[in-house]
Amino acid sequence: MSALISPVVPRTAARRLGWVLSDAWVIARSNLIHLTRNPAGMASMLLFPIVMVVMFGYVFGSAMTVAGGGDYRAFLMPGMFAQTMAVGVTTTLVVVSTQATYGVTDRFRSMPVSQSGVVLGRALADMAGSALELAVLIGCGLVVGWGWHNGPLPALAAVGLLLLLRFSLIWVGIFVGLKLKPESAGASWMLMLPLTMIANTFASPAQMPGWLGALAEWNPLSATVAACRELFGNPGWSGGSWAAQHALALAIGWPLLITAVFLPLAARTYRRLDRV
């Protein structure tokens, strides 16, 4: 058997970029095939938010009052959207940690695959999965009486903010995933749930004890949720604190800050896999 191709390492920036994009697509595609081949996993991934909507919207919701007035389920949905984006980080974490542990990452690294391509592929696949979850949840929201009231453009901007939050968490997922074993990565889900609940997701921070309310106000998730409520025209977005008043700026600022911190950390950890 003879060698099929003579190896050529690309020298021009354009060819290198071509590699990055082609590698990213190949990796994203294989991850998307995973989604379609795992109907049970996909069903539970899509059903979980719906179950949460029913539980919080109807079981607890009947006993809830929205600070400032308004329908609880209309208040709840932006919280559910953002929570789903945030919990999505566990997908990144588990996949990254599993691939690093079971030699897949090593195979990538022993091949002439562009490292940016690997990461970009991971990001594309995760974003596609989360966008699908968000779409299902929006449909679910429309069924339970939620809707947008400020026109389509602010609504699209809100969707953009939600995806921006998810995007920033990809880097957290890669950074932490490279440091954890798959078993602990799986358990991170248990931690994410309370982190997404000490926020304005399900109740207004104004109704919480003072210290907890302050924590909830400054939770990056709260900024996205408050900004979405404002953009969708849903109840409960106004609040007295500085964080609540500047929700829109923070909903852009927090994800940018998270990306600015964790993207270099993730890249550095990946590059430094050759030192451990």
Binding site: P7, R37, V104, D106, S110
Partner: peptide
């Protein structure tokens, strides 16, 4: 990069994608 084009590696755990 030149080395990676000329080597194959089979590690202790098969690095294959289970779902594919």
């Amino acid at each position: 990069a030149e080395v990676r084009y000329r080597i194959g590696l089979t590690g202790q755990a098969p690095a294959v994608d289970e779902i594919l």
